[in-house]
Structure formats: C-alpha cells, structure tokens
Simulated scan of single mutants.
Amino acid sequence: MSDLRASTLTWAEVDPLRHPFELDEDAAKALAGLVAPLLPSPEAMEELWPHSLDPVTEFLVNRYGRWASGWDWSVGEGDNDGGVVDVWCCANHSMTTADATAPLAVTALLEWRDWIEDLAERFSALAPPSHSAVPLSSVDPWYWERACTRLVTVVADRTRAHSGWYGHCMQVLEWFLAYSGIDEERAREIVESAVGGRFSSWAAPDVVLVDTVSSRFARTVDGNL
C-alpha cells in the first residue's frame, strides 16, 4: 500500500489537472454507502488507533488517487496534525454511528479537494509569466517573493496557525515551486532554506517574519543565497 500520510504528498500526486474528480450529490451518497462498512465500531476504534481509519483512506486512495489521503488532515491536533480540513476533527470526536460518520467523511474529502483546487488557481495566478518558457534565472525575484507572501498567509489562515501548521505551509510552497517547473529535490532545499525553523505551532507569523521568509525564498530560488 502507498504511503497514507498526506504530509508527504507531492504536487504531481495532487495536481487537479492530472487527477480529475467530480462528485455530485447522488455520487456522494453512493460513496458514503461504500465508506460506512469500512468504519470501525466505537468499541474497536480506540484499540485500532492510530490506524482505525486506514481502511477508509486506503479505499479512497485506491479509488481516486493518493491525493485523497488528505481527507482527514484536520486543523490542529487531530489524528493528523496541522491540516486544513474543518469538518473532520479526529476519530475520537468525529465518529459516531457508521451511517452518520460516512457522509461526514465524504464531506471532508470534498473539503480537502476544494482546497487543492483553490491552490491550483492561486498557483496559476502567482506563477511568473510564461514560467514554462522563461529560464528561472530570468524571472524577476518579485514574483517569487509575492507568491511566498500570499501562500504563507493563506495557509496560516486556513490552518489557523494551529499545531504543526508550518509543515503544510512548507509543503504548499514546495508544490508551488514544482508547479513552476522546479524539481522536487531543489524545491525542498529552497523551502527549507527560507522557512526551516522560523515558524512555530500556535503562532501566526507577523508581517516582519513573512517578509523575511519571502525575501529569503525569492533569493534562494534566484540562486543568490
């Protein structure tokens, strides 16, 4: 089975253009019916934790692709720390009966997918003009700085800068660089250089810190740091 941690997802694995997805109301109800039998009983839930929801995640990943592993990546200290999903908290708090919980899991999947699609739109708007045709060395660093500032701000807002939020923030910055044509290994190096150790749980970055990180981000992409 592939890695079920959403924190390790790459842009290639979540890019909506590569992984089309539609789920109307009837299909959502049908999906909930397939998810319900995979949910553990309340009695078994604690015994199986932290893997009590693995059967659901495996099913969704096999059906839709690895991007779906983020369906339960909730805000704050859920089963998976530092995500953006609001409708799902964790198995202990979100699960009741299978019939009630399965539609909630589907709603969480849709919320996660909406976030990915929102990011794709933001990436398109923030990417340097003709980024696929112009050498990175020729791109005005202002584009990278602007993108970093806006992406850090939106991730801090969506995660409410709760526990572990900076992990997904760094991931989103890596995704943006990958979208812009930078290979994954180099993207990780750039983001680690710009962000590593500068953000903290339960602390939204102030303007000065965001500006500092964004400036380092731009200079690192440009090869001047």
Results as ranks from 00 to 15, higher is better:
residue 14 V to N: 02
residue 17 L to D: 09
residue 17 L to H: 09
residue 18 R to P: 05
residue 18 R to L: 15
residue 19 H to E: 01
residue 20 P to A: 09
residue 22 E to Q: 06
residue 22 E to V: 07
residue 23 L to H: 07
residue 24 D to L: 03
residue 25 E to H: 08
residue 25 E to K: 06
residue 26 D to M: 02
residue 27 A to M: 12
residue 28 A to T: 09
residue 28 A to Y: 05
residue 30 A to G: 01
residue 32 A to T: 11
residue 33 G to I: 10
residue 34 L to C: 12
residue 38 L to Q: 10
residue 38 L to P: 10
residue 39 L to Q: 13
residue 41 S to I: 07
residue 42 P to A: 08
residue 42 P to E: 10
residue 42 P to L: 12
residue 43 E to S: 06
residue 44 A to P: 03
residue 45 M to K: 07
residue 45 M to V: 01
residue 45 M to F: 15
residue 49 W to I: 00
residue 51 H to G: 03
residue 52 S to R: 13
residue 54 D to C: 04
residue 55 P to W: 04
residue 56 V to G: 02
residue 58 E to V: 15
residue 59 F to N: 07
residue 60 L to G: 07
residue 61 V to L: 09
residue 61 V to Q: 12
residue 61 V to E: 11
residue 62 N to T: 05
residue 62 N to C: 03
residue 63 R to H: 10
residue 63 R to W: 04
residue 64 Y to M: 09
residue 65 G to S: 08
residue 66 R to F: 01
residue 66 R to Y: 01
residue 66 R to A: 12
residue 66 R to W: 01
residue 67 W to Y: 10
residue 67 W to V: 13
residue 70 G to R: 14
residue 70 G to C: 11
residue 71 W to I: 05
residue 72 D to P: 09
residue 72 D to K: 15
residue 72 D to I: 15
residue 74 S to E: 03
residue 76 G to D: 13
residue 76 G to M: 08
residue 77 E to V: 09
residue 78 G to N: 05
residue 79 D to T: 05
residue 79 D to N: 08
residue 79 D to H: 11
residue 80 N to T: 13
residue 81 D to W: 15
residue 81 D to F: 15
residue 81 D to I: 15
residue 82 G to W: 05
residue 83 G to L: 07
residue 83 G to K: 08
residue 83 G to A: 08
residue 84 V to W: 07
residue 85 V to S: 02
residue 85 V to E: 02
residue 85 V to K: 04
residue 86 D to F: 00
residue 86 D to R: 15
residue 86 D to E: 14
residue 88 W to R: 08
residue 89 C to P: 00
residue 90 C to G: 06
residue 91 A to G: 11
residue 91 A to S: 11
residue 92 N to H: 09
residue 94 S to E: 03
residue 97 T to A: 01
residue 97 T to F: 01
residue 97 T to P: 01
residue 98 A to T: 10
residue 99 D to Y: 00
residue 100 A to G: 03
residue 100 A to D: 14
residue 101 T to L: 00
residue 102 A to I: 02
residue 102 A to T: 02
residue 102 A to E: 03
residue 102 A to R: 02
residue 103 P to N: 15
residue 104 L to Y: 00
residue 105 A to N: 04
residue 106 V to G: 03
residue 107 T to W: 00
residue 107 T to H: 07
residue 108 A to Q: 12
residue 108 A to L: 10
residue 108 A to F: 05
residue 109 L to P: 03
residue 110 L to C: 14
residue 111 E to N: 14
residue 111 E to S: 13
residue 111 E to Q: 15
residue 112 W to T: 06
residue 112 W to V: 07
residue 113 R to G: 02
residue 113 R to C: 04
residue 114 D to Y: 13
residue 116 I to G: 01
residue 116 I to F: 10
residue 117 E to I: 06
residue 117 E to D: 14
residue 118 D to G: 07
residue 119 L to P: 00
residue 119 L to G: 02
residue 119 L to Y: 09
residue 119 L to H: 08
residue 121 E to L: 14
residue 123 F to P: 00
residue 124 S to M: 13
residue 125 A to Y: 03
